[in-house]
Every structure is written in C-alpha cells, then in structure tokens.
Amino acid sequence: MPTMTMLQALNSALAEKLANDPDVLIFGQDVGYFGGVFRVTDGLQSRFGLERCFDAPISEGGIVAAAIGMAAYGLRPVPEIQFADYILPAFDQLVSEAARLRYRSAGEFWAPLTVRSPYGGGIFGGQTHSQSPEAIFAHITGLKTVIPSTPFDAKGLLISAIEDDDPVIFLEPKRLYNGPFDGRHDRPVPTWQGNPAAEVPEGLYRIPLGTAARVREGEAATVLAYGTMVHVARAAIEESGIDAELIDLRSIVPLDIDTIVASVKKTGRCVILHEASRFGGFGGELSALVQERCFYHLEAPIERVCGWDTPYPHAFEWDYFPGPDRLIKALRRVMRND
C-alpha cells in the first residue's frame, strides 16, 4: 500500500471525487494553476481541466456564497479557504445561509458544500496564520466540523464530507501536512514515512463522520483530542508512563458521544486537549457533556489543557502551544486526585 503524507492523501481524495462525480468542483485562492499555497490541489487543474479546479477572487464571503449557490443548484463544491483565520469574512454566509438553508426551506433547498481550510499553529505564522476556530463552528447548529489527524483519516473523512448532504467545515491541521508533529519542536520532526496511519489505499474509501477513533487503549484516564493534539497527546502519554486511553474525536460535529462516555466510565478520569484558547473553547462543551453523563464515575475533576486566552503570539509560539509537558502535568494532577 502506498505511503502518503497528509497533503498527498487530501490530494488523492479530491482527485478520486473529481474523477468519480462530475458535480464535484474545487475553487479558492491560488488553488488552480498553482495548486494551492500548501499544494493540496497540486496537479488537479491540469488533470481535470480549468472548470473543475480554478482560482477564486480574494473574497471569502464571495467564495462561500458562490459555493452555497452551486450546492443549492445540485453541485458538490469543495471551496478552499487559504487559512482558517480567513474564514471569518465568510462567517455570515456559513451561519445565516449554509447552516439554515435546509431547515428554513423545509427541505426544498440544501447546501452540500465542503469548506476545506488549513488551521492551527506550530509554523510561526503569527496571529493570523495559526488560529483554531473549531468552537465557533461547533456552536452553529446545521454545520458539521471535521478534523483529521492522519493521512488515512484525512482521505476517508474528506470523501465522506464531500458526499455528505449537509455543509461541512473540514479543518486540516497544517502542522501535520508533512509529518506527525508531537509538539517536541526542539527535536527532529518525523515524516509520515513508515507511519502505519500513512498507509493510504488508492481509490475511494470512507470513514463515517461522527466516529471517533480509540488511538491508544488504557485504563487510568481518558484523553480527548483532535487534529495536531492527537500526536501531542500520544507523546505525552508515552512519556508520562500513565496508562491513559487516547480518543481522537475526528469530527466534533457530529460528535461520537458513545465512545467518549464509554471510555470515561471505564477510566474515571478525563483530560481534554485543544490548541484553541481555553475560554469558550470546544473543551468546555466536552467537559460539560462528560460531567452530565459520567458524574458518578469520575474520580477527579475534568482537566482542560488549551492555548492561553490571548491571540496567537509570534515570538511565544512554544509558550502558547499546549505541548506535551503541560498535558503530562495535567495527567499527573488527575491521577493524584484519588
């Protein structure tokens, strides 16, 4: 089976869908001839033609509005927003239009678009190339939000997202495009080469949205993570020597609540890890759900390890980034509390 980076796996998913469904088309800033600033759409225009993968004006609101119109007509557009930080000019289109079209028209119209966008930090991108905006989408009923952490998942989830009949925000952890970064920025960074999760089959395959993955089985505590933080969590758990179970949510809406609850009921402890700022972050929702459903099984307060409540600061990248050391401390805290 071929080994692919996450970039190649995403490119492969897009190519499979372009080949398999004439209603799929891709547009966004610099995605056409150039193949995207991160090269996710590399070669797609020359393979599939100008009308299947083309450049868009610098107007995120316009990109999403046009995609909604196309989707309402019956196409399956897969627009790219160059950085998740730049989704905000399209926010009204996503919230007031894409998310509600089916509901308000009583099913006469719907919008099966998939908005792909690189998100997250770890690349010294400063305040506007580093953010993790997943919580603001999770809060909007009617939007699905998917975040892969491996090449294999990226391809299977993207295919499912494109085939889904509802609008999907597909956030790609840009720090994982070329390797499974575990937050140890001062050590050599591994590539995807030789990683079992980078064995990506040719052809179409699907990972259903709303199914979490149990990445590591354990008895002592449950760690909930997604995207880049899955790799940070894995490294932290190994280093801590604590037998924690690691759940990769893979999509936060729909959320695989059963897998989460089963794990926390088993371990009795829960640590939530995300890169976005803590206050109002998705960890707050996860914490509330776990508390509501697992209260009598909990042996310790639920912990959240997150980015600080500041913008993403350029020089302080590694002071801001919730790396393995902070997770190890949190794991020790929940273990001590018995």
């Binding site: 730049y86 305040q127 506007t128 190339h129 350029h314 020089a315 302080f316």
Partner: peptide, 21 residues
C-alpha cells in the same frame, strides 16, 4: 514579540497597525 515580521505599527509616523488579514 506579538506580531508576524513586517506587520509594523508606527503611530508617530502616521502608519496604522498592520495585520495579516
């Protein structure tokens, strides 16, 4: 240390704060 290189701010020189967006 808070801002990406070249996204200057220089109020006294009549130069408003830059941002990446």
């Amino acid at each position: 240390g808070r801002q990406l290189p070249i996204l200057y701010s220089a109020r006294d020189y009549g130069f408003y704060s830059l941002s990446g967006n």
